[in-house]
Design a protein around this nucleic acid. Structure first.
Lengths: 141, 141
DNA sequence: CTTGACCTTGTAGTGGGTCTAAGGTTTATG
DNA sequence: CATAAACCTTAGACCCACTACAAGGTCAAG
């Protein structure tokens, strides 16, 4: 099957599939007589694997590692599970960081009347120095 | 004050401050006789502004827009507030996306025994095709 | 007078693609 | 059989938001 069919089946754009081959995430891709890339069901499984791993938050380097495990029949499932658990911790940190941004933004919005006048508490707060300790150092300017 | 002092006060690395100048996010930066950049309290306010806006999730283009509003004494605070409200929606979408990843990862991890054997449900699930509809198309290969 | 801590510039690299240009191939239609 | 549309190929530029590095200039302390 051609690349666009593999793209449909895997959920990855053709450009991304070519890119993955270029960075050696996919190797030994067959070619038809006309020079077109030729994919089979196993290739689609690998592509789907990458698509799923990427959309669940794994970096391309982590995907490389996961693919190694996928292709290794002597792997230990504990190693795969550990990667997933580590990624969970990572994702939870990202969520916490976004929730912190969210509450900051909520406070900013609530402190602004949002009318046609120029006075805006949001801008005042954003322009405040970095921290108390830095305000103290600022005096020595 | 030199760049490293401005960096300390604003919370931005010196390299980032130079970069912001290069992309015209900061303009009219003064220079001392020796050619060093020379910052005053107003500059530090702008830098702090950028630091805060960035850590609350605004892109550099959005920061540019916010700085325009900051420097416009005829602005309407409703425009600033609207940017913050839009960013809140954006952040909430990002949180939802991460929470979806998190639950997928949790399900994957829970479905894997995590022992020394090679059998691993995580890898099986990751290698599944993209969707039911694509599985049906796959038959036409 | 040298050492080390600053500062300057320009350039290249990062991750993970996305897009474009310039061409070759295949398929459908008239 | 011609031709147009829809594929495919490659190399290379571009995106964001930095970050690192090289090669050099400046400055304060000992």
């Amino acid at each position: 099957m051609n690349i666009s069919q593999a793209a449909k089946l895997s959920g990855l754009p053709s450009e991304t599939i070519r890119y993955y081959e270029k960075i050696d995430l996919l190797i030994n891709v067959k070619r038809s007589a006309n020079g077109y890339r030729d994919y089979d069901a196993k290739d689609v499984a690998l592509l789907s694997f990458l698509q799923h791993a990427r959309t669940t938050g794994f970096s391309l380097d982590e995907c490389r590692h996961l693919l190694d495990l996928y292709g290794d029949d002597k792997r230990q499932s504990v190693h795969v599970k550990q990667m997933v658990e580590n990624k969970l911790v990572d994702i939870e940190k990202q969520i916490a960081s976004l929730q912190s941004m969210k509450s900051t933004l909520r406070n900013l919005a609530d402190g602004c009347r949002g009318d046609e006048t120029p006075h805006c508490h949001i801008l005042d707060v954003l322009a405040e120095p970095y921290s108390i300790s830095s305000i103290q150092k600022e005096k020595t300017q």
